[in-house]
Design a protein around this nucleic acid. Structure first.
Lengths: 232, 232
DNA sequence: TGTACATCAGTGAACGCGCGTTCACTGATGTAC
DNA sequence: TGTACATCAGTGAACGCGCGTTCACTGATGTAC
């Protein structure tokens, strides 16, 4: 894509900045991310970084987008070889999220942890990459539903008109025709999955409480997939 | 308790330091918490704070303990007036956690969000207050089980010897006799609850995605309590 | 193909600000006789 | 009850470090004629 040497050098430097930023995120956390430190590692005077990045916040935004895409790519890659069976594919997706999060705790924290004080991710830029995983999940909910793999709760939960309207917007956006109860349970699964993963990554249970966390996660996911409506 | 004027003044100043620290946590985040800033607000020269607190990390520890206790107190207070019905009491507990978290996002983030880089909470001091809510939950699981309100999943999940051993330790520590499947589902409920709450507090769904988040939370909790085994 | 001009990456100094922690000190409060 | 001494809260200066951002500048790269 970049044609002239200068343009190629620029693209390379841009990549380097994000890579170095990632490393600083991992070692010092998002709040301590500093353009001066990035410049030092880049081997350049601090003001030079401003040729590439308008401000510290813009670098944070680049890292947020980079993180969402890395997670999305990891999930997509894991699903490529998975069997065409919605429950199994949801499990594969969940495992991929957890594995990525455990391997990249700082990036995971940037995306799903405490917000960075004084920083608001610009929705126009982060929305698309930020919804990749939930979009994939929704599609799998749709498949499971169409194939009759899900049992509706009995009695059906009562959803107010206002909230049902929100669900309708989601249905239209994703072009999926899921009933209200499934949207509800789907968003419950989604939020719960991030609870399980955060519990592991942020070490919410004490260090040695559970002998085998991988196994615990499998059991937890099984419980949550039952909750979604898969017949046991 | 403190008898001499000097001791009373000391206790008061200690309280002030924690109170000011809480305010800074809320406005600037844990990573930016600074003893100098606390000293400024306390109306005292920066080195004076070292008469009360050994280091910045020690102040963080005080705030962690303070936070866990505030959450524990909020939950206990909510349960005082609640009916003697395990499912209802679990709902009340969950609502209390969420309400507290939404009212105190910074403190919630300190306890359950991204770890503060370079800081490790000393387990000897934070363990006790840190487990208050889960201990209360476990007791409610126990009550529900004894009263026959819960249906075991069928088939029962298979738990390895190692993990079952971890469950046994928990059973002994809390003096409760819950079967493995219930410990599993209990810890799933616990982690999922914090997923739902984090989703709300850290704004994981976009701002206006759901018309009524309180209602959504009720629906989500209903789904999770079904998952635990309450007959619908 | 060669020249003139425009673009751009990177420099170095500066502004004004923040931080944690140590240290020798003063003066007030508490205690033992 | 009074005095001598010990304890302790708070001061102010200092050390050595960090940060984001702006600005006028040099020298290399790219482009239009």
């Amino acid at each position: 894509m970049p044609t002239t040497p200068r343009a190629r050098a620029r693209a390379q430097t841009m990549e380097d900045i994000v890579r170095i930023g990632r490393a600083h995120l991992a070692s010092d956390g998002a709040a301590a991310l500093s353009l001066r430190a990035v410049a030092r590692d880049l081997g350049v005077v601090s003001s030079a970084v401003y040729r590439y990045v308008r401000s510290r916040d813009e670098l944070l935004t680049l890292l947020v987008i980079d993180g969402y895409n890395a997670l999305g790519d990891a999930v997509d890659a894991a699903l490529v070889g998975a069997p065409d069976e919605p429950r199994e594919r949801l499990l594969v997706l969940a495992r991929a999220v957890r594995t990525w999060a455990l391997a990249e705790p700082a990036r995971y924290g940037l995306l799903f942890g405490t917000p960075v004080p004084g920083y608001d991710a610009p929705a126009e830029q982060t929305m698309m990459p930020g919804t990749r995983v939930i979009v994939t999940m929704q599609a799998l909910f749709g498949q499971a539903y169409e194939r009759g793999l899900l049992t509706a709760p009995d009695p059906l939960p009562v959803v107010s008109g206002a909230l049902s309207g929100s669900f309708e917007v989601i249905r239209r956006e994703f072009g999926l025709d899921l009933p209200d109860w499934l949207v509800t349970r789907g968003v419950t699964l989604w939020a719960s999955l991030f609870g399980l993963v955060s519990g592991d990554v942020f070490d919410m249970y004490g260090g040695g409480t559970f002998a085998d966390r991988d196994e615990l996660f499998e059991l937890q996911m099984a419980a949550l997939l039952d909750m979604l409506g898969f017949r046991p």
